[in-house]
């Protein structure tokens, strides 16, 4: 019912042709230490181009940290992140965008928030105007253009955050629990934005606690436990027949503690 055909941007489509699907983003022996503890502990994963990868796991298990590491916001203490086979650099990060667990709204109007992101990413003149209009329409925020972004409802803020990230035409979009505090209608709207982006060729990496959402949106699934990967596989497969004790316990709503946590 929300099937508006919107072209997210030529760059995304061009990259899609060029990149080998299995090697867009890779973590190799990824470790991150903080406060004297190893919070991410030797993760090896592949994020495949054009796929939607779900990251699941209990609170505090390291999902947000993993997304930050993959996005290059923090440096791993060991191991590395590869972007199309090479160490993640500025150009690689330029092809990524992220929607944070607590969306960051500048103290400006809705439109000014979009405009800032686009300007920073080097979009100018008429192209910027076109992208602004597209994003406003996509997020269905046209009526709120001049409203201060910080007074928007949580659902409106998430829509704006997703639209702002997509306006910059990223190759990969990281989303950290984008619907955690939203009602079903807003959740649906955000999921729809994600679907549209995916349809336009954007690779999705989504952290969520919502098994239903994982089923609806997931292609691949990474299940984490205590800073490690407990299990990976096709999303529906992991959700239906979990092999690891951590995933099984989590899906059954049990508290799972092993020796390493």
């Amino acid at each position: 019912m929300l099937e508006t055909e919107i072209n997210v941007g030529a760059p995304a489509a061009a990259w899609r042709e060029a990149a080998p699907p299995e090697a867009l983003l890779q973590a190799r022996g990824l470790c991150f230490e903080g406060g004297g503890k190893r919070l991410i502990d030797g993760i090896d994963i592949d994020i495949r181009a054009g796929r939607r990868t779900i990251v699941m796991g209990a609170n505090g298990t390291g999902k947000s940290l993993l997304l930050r590491l993959l996005h290059g916001l923090i440096r791993p203490t060991k191991g590395e992140v590869l972007w199309r086979g090479r160490p993640l650099d500025r150009r690689g990060r330029h092809a990524q965008a992220m929607v944070f667990q607590r969306p960051v709204m500048l103290r400006r109007s809705v439109l000014a928030n979009l405009r800032f992101a686009l300007a920073v990413r080097g979009f100018t003149g008429s192209e910027r105007s076109v992208r602004e209009a597209e994003a406003m329409e996509r997020a269905r925020l046209e009526g709120l253009a001049t409203r201060p972004a910080r007074v928007l409802s949580a659902g409106e803020q998430q829509r704006l955050a997703v639209a702002r990230a997509l306006a910059c035409a990223p190759r990969v979009l990281f989303l950290d629990e984008p619907t955690a505090s939203l009602d079903p209608v807003s959740t649906h709207a955000v999921e729809q934005l994600i679907r549209e982006a995916h349809a336009d060729g954007v690779t999705i990496v989504l952290a969520t606690h919502d098994a239903g959402q994982a089923r609806r949106l997931g292609d691949d699934l990474i299940f984490m436990h205590a800073g490690r990967v407990a299990e990976t596989g096709c999303a529906s497969h992991v959700l239906n027949t979990p092999r690891s004790e951590a995933a099984r316990a989590w899906l059954e709503g049990r508290l799972y503690l092993d020796s390493s946590s």
């Binding site: 930050r68 944070f100 960051v104 500048l106 103290r107 920073v120 990413r121």
Partner: peptide, 28 residues
Amino acid sequence: DLHTDYAEQFASLEVRPFDRVVALLWDA
């Protein structure tokens, strides 16, 4: 204080130092 709010978003967008300073001054 405002930058602690904005830091991750700025890092994600790769805002250049000059633009950061201008944006923070404007928003504050």
